[in-house]
Amino acid sequence: MGTIRTDLLKFAEGNIYEEHQKFITTFDEKWRMDENIILIMCAIVLFTSARSRVIHKDVIRLEQVCPF
């Protein structure tokens, strides 16, 4: 199983690393140990239109409902 390099988040502005750590610890340990689940959950959180400070919420919503 691979390891996700979260230590790179320490170089980002703000407290992204700490917030990411809090986010990851909310999952059951079985899920935290599965890299695929963590990557999918991170993608869902990153690409949701409900996040604060998202600039183009309408574009995200359109992409989420538009079939391929």
Results as ranks from 00 to 15, higher is better:
T3P: 06
E13Q: 10
L8N: 11
G2R: 00
S52P: 09
V59Y: 15
I16F: 02
R32F: 02
E35A: 10
L8V: 13
E19Q: 07
I37W: 00
Q64D: 04
E35Y: 00
I44H: 05
K10P: 05
W31K: 06
D28S: 03
I24D: 02
D28C: 03
I37K: 02
V65D: 00
L39H: 02
L9W: 07
S49L: 09
A50N: 15
A43R: 08
H56R: 13
R5T: 06
N15Q: 13
G2E: 03
T6F: 14
S52D: 08
T48H: 08
Y17D: 07
F68R: 11
G14Q: 01
I55E: 09
E63R: 12
W31A: 06
R61D: 12
R51Q: 11
A50Q: 14
E29K: 04
L9S: 08
D7E: 15
T25K: 14
I38M: 03
D28M: 03
D34I: 03
D7F: 10
W31F: 02
T26L: 12
L8Q: 10
K30I: 04
T48Y: 04
L62C: 11
R5A: 06
M33W: 04
M33F: 02
I60D: 09
Y17C: 05
L9Q: 06
I40F: 05
R32H: 02
L39S: 05
P67K: 04
N15S: 08
T25N: 14
M41Y: 05
I55P: 00
R5K: 12
V65K: 09
M41T: 06
V54S: 11
R51T: 06
I60H: 10
K57T: 13
R61S: 08
I4C: 05
I37L: 00
V54N: 11
A50Y: 09
I16H: 03
V65L: 06
E29R: 05
T26W: 03
T6D: 06
R53T: 01
L9E: 08
E13D: 13
K57Q: 15
Q21Y: 07
Q21V: 14
F68G: 10
V59E: 15
K57W: 10
I60G: 08
L9G: 07
S52K: 12
G2T: 02
G2A: 07
K10H: 07
P67H: 05
K22A: 13
I40Y: 03
S52M: 12
